[in-house]
C-alpha cells in the first residue's frame, strides 16, 4: 500500500472532522501509520471546514494534505477549491445530492454519491459523512466490515451510546455501495 492522502471538505456541521477522526482510527486499528489535522485557519471561521488524514505503511512527514489521493467534497465551494489539488489518477468523492456540478477534470476518478439524500431516506439523519467513511474504507480496502463496531466505539462519545447503531448502519451502507 502506498500512502493514502485524504482531504475531506464541507460546511461546518456536516461532520467533516468526525469523518476524518474515524478514518484515522480505522488506520490506527489496522496497524498503519496515521495522522489527522483539522483546519483551524480563517476559512474555518467562514463556515467551511476541512481536514487532512493520512494512512500509510511509512513514516508520515507533514500531516498537511496538499495533494490528496482521495478528496471528499460535501459542498460546492470545496469542489471548486480543492478539485485542482488532487493528484492525477486520484479519486474524488462528491456528495451529489448537495453539489450540483460534477468534477471537471478527466484525469481523476469521480465517485458521485448522493450521501445526504441517502442518509435522509434511510432515516440516518445527518450521517452522510459516515456513509462516505464506509465507502472509503471499502474502496481503499482498509479493514473488513466486521472490525468496524469496535473501532466506532473508540470514536463515538461514551456519553452518547445511542449514536452507535445509526453510525454502524451508515458505515455498512457506504461499505456495501
Amino acid at each position: 500500500m502506498s500512502t493514502h492522502r485524504i482531504l475531506i471538505a464541507g460546511f461546518g456541521g456536516q461532520g467533516v472532522q468526525f469523518a476524518g477522526r474515524l478514518l484515522a482510527h480505522v488506520g490506527m486499528y489496522v496497524g498503519k501509520e496515521v495522522s489527522y489535522l483539522s483546519s483551524y485557519g480563517p476559512e474555518m471561521r467562514g463556515g467551511t471546514s476541512n481536514c487532512s488524514v493520512q494512512i500509510s505503511d511509512k513514516f508520515i512527514a507533514s500531516p498537511l494534505v496538499l495533494e490528496p489521493t482521495e478528496l471528499v467534497v460535501m459542498n460546492g465551494p470545496s469542489l471548486e477549491k480543492f478539485e485542482k489539488t488532487v493528484v492525477p489518477g486520484g479519486r474524488i468523492y462528491i456528495d451529489s445530492s448537495i453539489v450540483a456540478k460534477p468534477a471537471v477534470r478527466s484525469d481523476i476518478e469521480p465517485h458521485p454519491i448522493p450521501a445526504t439524500a441517502l442518509a435522509e431516506e434511510m432515516g440516518l439523519g445527518r450521517l452522510a459523512n459516515v456513509i462516505f467513511c464506509g465507502y472509503l474504507i471499502k474502496k481503499l480496502d482498509l479493514c473488513p466490515l466486521s472490525a468496524l463496531p469496535a473501532i466506532l466505539k473508540e470514536v463515538v462519545s461514551a456519553k452518547r451510546p445511542e449514536l452507535l447503531e445509526g453510525n454502524l448502519q451508515a458505515l455498512a451502507l457506504g461499505f456495501s455501495m
Binding site: 495522522s35 489527522y36 489535522l37 483539522s38 483551524y40 500531516p63 498537511l64
Partner: peptide, 10 residues
Amino acid sequence: DGMLGQMMEP
C-alpha cells in the same frame, strides 16, 4: 508549533 498542537497521531 500550531501544526504539532493541532494534529492527531497515535
